[in-house]
Design a binder for these strands. Sequence first.
DNA 1: TCCTGCTATGCAACGAGTTGCATAGGCAAT
DNA 2: ATTGCCTATGCAACTCGTTGCATAGCAGGA
Lengths: 183, 183
Amino acid sequence: MALEHAILVSLLEQPGSGYELARRFDRSIGRFWTATHQQIYRVLRRMETDGWIAVEEVAQDGRPDKKVYSAAAPGRAALASWLREPVEPETVRHELAVKIRAAAFDDQAALTSLISEVERHRESHAALLARYLTGERRDFPDLTSPSAQQELQHVVLRGGIEYERMTLAWLDDVLATLHRIAN
Amino acid sequence: MALEHAILVSLLEQPGSGYELARRFDRSIGRFWTATHQQIYRVLRRMETDGWIAVEEVAQDGRPDKKVYSAAAPGRAALASWLREPVEPETVRHELAVKIRAAAFDDQAALTSLISEVERHRESHAALLARYLTGERRDFPDLTSPSAQQELQHVVLRGGIEYERMTLAWLDDVLATLHRIAN
DNA sequence: TCCTGCTATGCAACGAGTTGCATAGGCAAT
DNA sequence: ATTGCCTATGCAACTCGTTGCATAGCAGGA
């Protein structure tokens, strides 16, 4: 279980409310660990009960109040001991790959609809890659001596960028293959 | 939900028992859709109740009996309508990426233990890539006119191969970065 | 002989994750 | 004026996925 830990890392990088965390998970972190707002709120409450995080109620004008969370000492300790545990292999759930193999057992129409699905998929990966690259230029300009935190955030982002590049190239391969079959 | 569909595809490619399916999921399909044997048995029973698959009890000598499942017409129909639904974006749960960012908030010892974790991770990806490449040579020799099924299986495998190559390169980048920070 | 490991299936309990819905004020556009 | 969207938090019900355990026969090695 690592949602707690992903939240702790995010709060250490920058304190925030459940809502803000949910949006961060939709952006950068979310590509490595997805979570909905309900999940986040539930886990935040548990973490607060366990003393892993501290809360501060913040009144805002023009907007509902929010609870700003930040990592507390027991949370840091929990994160430290988790860091020393062995890493589990990443789990991938690639629905598209299953569909591609499924297309062998269906007709021409299914192939055509799959092609447009793959194209749509390709679009969204291209858009995400563009967003990553923009973020990289903004957040990681050439520095003579970046901090450890920046270096680590950057290498994870580079992983995302390379993943998207690889995926785009593979989707092109998939499209070429589907067209060859459908000809 | 796509475990049903992944099982259907696997049964269409080749009928088999729950146990055999579990092993297939540990091999090829498992890298695109993971499932434990308990999950598989539970879903198989549901699919049988719904008439998606047919069962045949097969006695074996020297081994326990097994139930060999195969896809039935309603199952094929369910697969066909699923194929026409929009694809959801793949979900990735990349614990290692979270740990790398977490390392910014811990000490030198954590960094050292993370480095050996990344190296172990790298080993297993290298081993998987080797297995994929062996499988590719075995299952997809140069053919003048491969079947649609072969083409589709092959393009999915190429995706796995490229994913592993990309991951290996990234893990090297991660190791270089971690060493730079630890120096 | 005992221990380990493989084939083969399954139950029970729990924890993780999803879906639908609810509240509630403010802002912007139609 | 009403509709729709954004911030902000949360409950309830459900399904999915994991973990631990159980059974049971056979094979192979210390």
